[in-house]
Amino acid sequence: MTYVVHGATGAQGSPVVAALAAKGVLITAITRRADAEVVCARTLAVDLASIQQLTDAYRGAEGVFVHLPVVDAATRETYAGNIITALREARPERVVYSTSGFPADADPMAAALAESSLSYAVIAPRYYLENLLLPHVQEGVRADGVLRYPLPADFASSWGSHLDIADAAVALFEQRNVTGTVEVGQSPAVTGKDLAEAFATAYGRDVVYEPQTPVDFAVRLVPFMGADAAAVVQNGYEQIVALPDNAIGAERSAQQLLGLTPRTTHQWLIDLGLHQA
């Protein structure tokens, strides 16, 4: 049996491939480019606009890991509809979907999976620690000792890493009794000051946190992901900062449901080899 992983060459999919490969299973890596190569996996280029290609990729799979690209809402909904249609036709034994930080209660894939009769689970992270490694974020940390991010300084968030998502995905493929939404992230939630202190310890220098506007953050994202995707990110932060916090709940947490404890920011930096001590 084979496990199918969407976005297998990307930041979220590649750790899932690595975690599954460590289990010695067969993997089909879904990519957008036919010339992409993924270690330990069979690579398959699939157009998310093609229900037939998606169905063929899923057929006979033991598990499918899905996450959607950062695109406008209309395209995101179209892709979600195509994937759900293909999943219903192919009937893989298990589906694990990550909302990629988008609110789970307004996610088209999450809602459709709940009505699909498939064995499924939805991973709901908040923010990715890997966002703090973006070049313009790291430039501020290393050059100025300032960690800039579009959240208020005292805004408590359940940050997690792509490595934590991979751990949760593998656990959910194995623990099929766990269904519905599983929230992944640090608990208690951490603030911008906490993040800055972790980087200060890792880099051996003073680092302070400075809030950034979502507009400024999005402008600096454009060279890396394009204007349309940056606008989606900007809109997301503008909505989130209106909330009192963005912390996971204990009842549906990976800690409670899967017995997994997501990495602290300090441990994440160590795991990435970025800790100088």
Rank of each mutant, 00 (worst) to 15 (best):
R91N: 07
R91V: 09
L172D: 02
R142G: 04
R88H: 01
P125T: 06
E93F: 04
G160A: 15
R176E: 08
V170W: 02
I123C: 10
D167V: 06
H136A: 05
P108S: 03
A90C: 13
V122C: 07
Y128P: 10
P108T: 04
L87E: 01
Q138F: 03
E89P: 05
V95N: 01
A156V: 15
A124P: 03
L113W: 01
A143H: 01
G145I: 08
N131G: 12
E115P: 03
A166T: 09
Y97G: 07
S158M: 03
A156M: 13
L147Q: 05
P92H: 09
A121E: 11
V170L: 04
S117N: 15
A104M: 04
A90I: 10
F173N: 10
R94H: 03
G140K: 10
V141I: 15
H162P: 02
V137Y: 04
A112Y: 09
P92V: 08
S116T: 12
S157M: 10
L163V: 11
V95K: 05
E89L: 14
R142A: 15
A112M: 12
T99N: 01
D167M: 13
A166G: 02
P150G: 06
V178D: 00
Y128C: 12
A169R: 01
Y120I: 13
A121N: 09
G145R: 00
Q138L: 13
D105T: 10
S100A: 15
E130A: 14
G101A: 12
A110S: 13
S119D: 14
L118M: 08
V146F: 03
A143S: 12
D144W: 00
G101K: 06
L87I: 03
P152L: 08
P103W: 00
Y127F: 13
A106P: 00
E89I: 07
L87G: 02
L118V: 08
A171G: 13
R126H: 04
P152V: 14
A90S: 07
A111K: 14
P150W: 12
F102I: 10
H162C: 14
F155C: 09
G101E: 11
T179D: 13
S119E: 13
A114V: 09
S98N: 04
D167I: 07
A114C: 11
P92F: 04
P135N: 12
P125H: 01
G180I: 13
L147N: 10
L133W: 00
L151F: 02
E89Y: 02
A169C: 14
A166I: 08
P125K: 00
D144M: 05
A114Q: 14
S119N: 11
H136F: 15
V137D: 00
F155W: 07
P150I: 12
Y127R: 06
P135H: 04
A153R: 15
